[in-house]
Structure formats: C-alpha cells, structure tokens
C-alpha cells in the first residue's frame, strides 16, 4: 500500500536494521515488507494500533521465530533467524509485554538468573558476587526495597521494573521495551519514562513499543507508525501526530 517506504536499507544504517521484513502465518501477512533502522543512542517509538504487527515484528527481531523473508542486521551483522538467547548475548535484550517473571523465586533471584553465565558448570552464583550485582540492578530499576519479595507480591508497575531489571542484567546495548505504559497511572508513566531516559543517557539505545503515543511524546526522539504490518509514517513525534494517514489509521479506534 505504501510504495514510497520500501527503499532498501544498508546494514550500517543503524545499530539495528530491518530490511524488507515479511512475516506470514499461513495466508495472513502480519508484517509486510517493513524496513526500519534504529540509530545508536536514540529512543525510537514503534507505534501502531492493536494487531498492527508490532509484537510479530518484535518476535522476528528477538529470535522467537524467523521472518518469512527479509534481513535483520544487528551492529552491521546479518542476524536473521538467530536464536533468542544468542540475540541477548549479542546485546539485544527485550521485556515481555505480559510480564513473565519466574514466580518461584524472589525479585533478586529473577535478576540473578539473567546474570548467570550461559555455561553448564558454573559456581559463580555460590560466590555471592552475583547476588550483589543483582541487588545493584534492583536498586537501579527502583526495586531496592522489594528485592526479597516474590513477583506476585509486586504491583503492576513493579513487575515492569522487574522486566527492565532482568533485561538490564544481560548488559544490553539495545533494549526493546514492549508496551511499558499499558495499565500504568500518570505518575508511574512519568517515573518509568525518567528511568528509560536516564538509561539512554548512560548509552543505551531503546525501542519502545506502544499502541498509542500516551507517555511517549516527551520520551521518544523519533516515531515509526505501522498499520497492517506496513509503515505508514515516520518522523518526530509532533509531525506524526499531525500526519493525516496516521489520523485516519486511528479513526474510530484508539486515540493517538
């Protein structure tokens, strides 16, 4: 539907480059020839109405499943179809929209898992160093006073902080944050936004997925809007808001 967006991208156009990503499930095309470049050090908003293909795109990048066609470049390297855990090792971490803490262990132990080396025989955890690093990360994401709690004792915002903590424990260069602001109150949105911009200031690149711009406007540097799996707009947040195509996409549905 949009012929002007499908220009081929170069592997070095950004830290993460998606070039002509297509994902089909049977006859359904969930992602339709999507090309995106995420620049190092930016906070990119990845926006689209529910069912636009955001999570599918996300899953193709993080290795949950491979794209039907197209190429994913990370740091100039072709990483299409790389396993989820290997993408994390390369420096690309993610959070889960629906929050997936390990319910059988404390907040700190959840973070400790992400600090565990991917080796079969490791006694690192017995030395107490992992414990201290995990505690520091809990402090960083605002769970310092709740790290001995079980995840099911945490409120919604606390679970989001835990997701962020676990992702940060893998020492990422790029963090994909899936719908962080859904279900948060105004002050919580602000507090998480501040955390995310602090992380960016420390050198992290972020992609924040959301279905509307609530809370994103002041946070993101740039936005990409997709609908039916294809990009319909790209630019600064204010421009996006005025874009007629975007307004049409949201007509009668969510408010942008």
């Amino acid at each position: 539907m949009s012929a002007e967006t499908a220009s081929a991208l170069d592997p070095d156009d950004g830290l993460l480059v998606l070039d002509g990503i297509v994902k089909q499930f049977g006859g359904l095309t969930a992602v339709d020839d999507l090309s995106i470049a995420v620049e190092e050090g930016e906070i990119l908003g990845f926006i689209g109405p529910n069912g636009a293909g955001k999570s599918t795109t996300f899953n193709c990048v993080t290795g949950r499943y491979p794209p039907t066609s197209g190429t994913v470049y990370y740091d100039g390297e072709d990483v299409t179809g790389t396993d989820a855990h290997r993408m994390v090792t390369k420096g690309l971490a993610r959070t889960f929209q629906e929050f997936r803490p390990l319910e059988d262990r404390s907040v700190r132990e959840n973070v400790e898992l992400a600090l565990t080396p991917d080796k079969l025989f490791s006694l690192q955890g017995l030395r107490g160093e992992t414990r201290q690093r995990a505690a520091a990360i809990c402090e960083r994401v605002g769970l310092g006073d709740r790290m001995e709690m079980l995840p099911d004792e945490l409120p919604h915002a606390g679970l989001l902080r835990l997701e962020l903590g676990r992702a940060l424990a893998t020492e990422p260069e790029l963090l994909l944050v899936d719908e962080p602001f859904a279900g948060l109150s105004g002050p919580e949105v602000e507090s998480i936004s501040n955390l995310l911009s602090d992380l960016r200031d420390e050198g992290l690149t972020l992609v924040v997925v959301d279905h509307n711009m609530r809370g994103l406007l002041s946070l993101i540097d740039r936005a990409i809007v997709i609908q039916f799996g294809a990009m319909i707009a790209e630019g600064a947040p204010e421009e996006i808001k005025q874009d007629p195509t975007v307004q049409e996409a949201y007509l009668g549905g969510d408010e942008l």
């Binding site: 993080t62 290795g63 949950r64 396993d83 989820a84 855990h85 290997r86 994390v88 090792t89 971490a93 993610r94 889960f96 997936r100 803490p101 390990l102 898992l113 992400a114 565990t116 991917d118 676990r166 992702a167 424990a169 893998t170």
Partner: peptide, 9 residues
C-alpha cells in the same frame, strides 16, 4: 522464553 530472554540457551 524467559530463560532465553536472559541470554541462556
């Protein structure tokens, strides 16, 4: 999936 997201295979 959470294990894979923690960078562990």
């Amino acid at each position: 999936d959470a294990v894979a997201a923690a960078g562990l295979n």
